[in-house]
Amino acid sequence: MLKALQIDPGKCTGCKQCEMACSYVNEGEFNVSKSRIRVFDFHEDARFVPYTCTQCDEAWCQQACPVNAITTNEMGVKVVHDNLCVGCKVCTIACPFGTVNYNASTGKVIKCDLCGGDPACASACPTDAITFRDAEQSGFDKMKEWATKTTAGTEPTGPNAPA
């Protein structure tokens, strides 16, 4: 059974421990600007929204990569292979969720890879706003549902439909 990150903005306090854990695991330092997960702060609505890749089924980023540098592993995770990534950035504009980003210091793209199966953001979250759970047990979250519906042309009711 595939596991997925479940994000509940209602539980987020905006502490950014997830961003620090992510940057530590992936960059070897505390650097929230390089985190793969970002907490959006909607101050006037008293709402914090952690946001990262949903590992959508028919991944735009993967389809858009011209050199097969993004693949799906056995856990359903879309992984960027640094040795193949040429830094063309097509995936960064192709992902409609904006969760693949260019890292100018390496000349390659970065995205959430669920830390190889033990996502540091979920472990670091003090309020369980981010949890790593069986995807089917908890149901697909809203974004993932959105993602699967909007694959190129396969689902006529998705947001891809002309207004």
Binding site: C15, M20, A46, P126
Partner: peptide, 12 residues
């Protein structure tokens, strides 16, 4: 409405 954490705070 809610509680809020400062940066890095797990108390909030």
């Amino acid at each position: 409405l809610t509680n809020q954490a400062c940066f890095g705070c797990t108390i909030a």
